[in-house]
Design a binder for these strands. Sequence first.
DNA 1: GTTACGACTTACCGCTTGGTAAGTTTTGTA
DNA 2: TACAAAACTTACCAAGCGGTAAGTCGTAAC
Lengths: 199, 199
Amino acid sequence: MSTDTREQLLDTAEALFAERGFYGVSIAAIADELGLTKQALLHHFGTKEKLYGEVLKRISNTFETAQIEARQTGDDPVTQLKSFLLFQLTAVSTDQARAALLMRELLDNKRRADTASTWYLKPFLESLVEMVQAVPAWANASEAAALATAYQLLGAINYYAVSGPTLVGIFGDSRVGALDAAFPGQFEALIDAALSSRS
Amino acid sequence: MSTDTREQLLDTAEALFAERGFYGVSIAAIADELGLTKQALLHHFGTKEKLYGEVLKRISNTFETAQIEARQTGDDPVTQLKSFLLFQLTAVSTDQARAALLMRELLDNKRRADTASTWYLKPFLESLVEMVQAVPAWANASEAAALATAYQLLGAINYYAVSGPTLVGIFGDSRVGALDAAFPGQFEALIDAALSSRS
DNA sequence: GTTACGACTTACCGCTTGGTAAGTTTTGTA
DNA sequence: TACAAAACTTACCAAGCGGTAAGTCGTAAC
């Protein structure tokens, strides 16, 4: 079926872009993975840039969906925010490739002309700020302060997700295993600490 | 002078690698920036990989130097750790290109064959763990727990440093200005909170 | 004053890249 | 069964890539 091939191409492209970056992957390599020629890929997406854009768009869609779901629970703001951040942690640990791809995009998008797909983070971040400000202790905090804290927590998650292989290289499998085990607990403590302490 | 050209090539390479990544920059582009041919560059460094390796080595050296200096102050462990992390924050904010390059290396090095230059972060991280464990409240914490927290704080810094241009695109200059102003204060609060709360 | 060496250039090579053009095969539809 | 559109392929291209080979040029040593 046609959409099947398209989706498969997007899957493959996402994985390879995450692993090697935009310039590190040729469209021929992506098509090859599915036993196709690069012209088959170009038939579906036109150019390499457009393919990349569609990969980003797809990610952005799943992002928004997940967040909308998270905010529909009736929990109190603190619980809601905590469970959302911890969900982000597991999501990002489960799909490290996706985290890597988004990190690469963060590094690259200042150069990319296509600004439309670039700000996939916008609704995500704005929603996150609202969630922080919904916490009673933060009710009258400035947007900047709330965003700073939210962003610090987000950074803790994403930097970690992206560092896996390097950390294994440095500390070895067993010590990283211990780190993986300790991380969520420490992160939860960090969230609590961050939410209760306003400077 | 000859070493001058070498150093200039390293400067240019560092800037371009940070901006576009290893595969996004050709050696011709680097040499061109100084009005040289790519063969002049190859004369000095042999291959593109070796040039990249020397860029990393140079960064790694300045890293170690800064850390050794930080630990030579006679301050108490908490102050020492706090001032070191805050120094990292300003360093990384000042030289965002360097932060970007290191983030790229974090993403790419699992693929790179040359393992020698790969673990430039090792002494840095090990020293950081020692600094955490020197804090009285953390004296008998596991290495994993100390590393997790240290790494979370490091992530908060680096993710932020790398997000600058994207955040401006999302929120605009003025709101990012407010964020920049709020960030260090919030980060200091986060350090305090993290150090005082062990899970 | 020749020799030697470092710093560079011009010329070239084989290979890969993203993309175009022009076909062929498959598939769904009337 | 005819036909159009979608899903591909083969053939090709100009440009760019990292790297080699073979020199030129200026300068410092003896």
